[in-house]
Amino acid sequence: MGAGVAPGPGGSAMRFGVRARRVAQVAGVAGVLFAGAAAALAAPWHVVFEATSPYHHIRVIDEDGMRVLSFDGSTETQMSLSDPLRGHFEYTEYFHLVWLWQSRLSNVLMIGLGGASVQRAYAHYYPEVTVETVELDPTVVQVARDYFHFKEGPKQKVRVEDGRVFVRRTTRAYDAIVIDAYTAGRYGSFIPYHLATREFFELARRRLGTNGVVAYNVIGSLRGYQADILGAVYRTLNAVFPRVYLFPARESDNVVLVATCASQPVTLRQLQRRADAIVRGRRVSLPGFRTRVAAFRSLPPSNAHRSPVLTDDYAPVDGLLSGRTLRALEAAPAAPASPRPRK
């Protein structure tokens, strides 16, 4: 803390004459500037908040005009200090695409708060949409309020609870459910398995209306980095929802999966026409909304057919993340690739 706020020598100038005072003030300002510059050179970033919650070592770091939320040493969220609506990760903008299937979006459930990038954007661009957020870690909620401009109100509610417990107990219906409860750590990613199984997606589907959609962030890529987990989450979503589409982010290894209750398939052309209508109707004013639509991909990931459907009974997410489970399944096809459903 405290870079650039070192007290200058100006304070002792009070008993001199005006001229002397002015000189002292200039010296003081110069002193402050110098101290600030020196601090900036010595420490280009500084920690404005640090705490250890039951889940993470949380730090808020200001660096080069950006505010960064770090969990266990890896960046969760970032935000521009001068404009909180800028500087966020590009992948979070794909969460706005639920509008393409819900042109009258009014109720959204979000699982995972983090640095509130999506919540902040929704509150700004669609102030009439009600957003309920469920976040497991109370410290994260506090940090989002204090450092990431997250404001609670009648349209922005937050509940400290596990996402699955909430979805199981709620009786409300939502137009869309946005799931970003996946964290990346220094030693790779961590995926809460109980938010990625067929049973969980069935619970989620029960809370959606007729044209409801689920948008799910997977840290991974179509080929290579954590492709196994992407294939498995795709296949699991597809076991519950008739259509699943992929939106691979351009700037990071994230893929946002959009699963729809509607069984009618859509094409990129149709989605672009819908996007044009929505933007023309001024329902969505997010800059670059139409560019995000172009990332659309309707083909399943190439490994989806040999990925397991994740269930409460068999969800080897840690093995999938490290790539060893799919290799083992291929070596021994008799292994329980997709165990029979238990009801």
């Binding site: 889940y55 417990v165 109980h194 938010l195 199984t197």
Partner: peptide, 12 residues
């Protein structure tokens, strides 16, 4: 502990 998480969540 893993088994209970599906019902009680990923809580600490």
């Amino acid at each position: 502990a893993r088994f209970l998480a599906k019902d009680f969540g990923g809580a600490f």
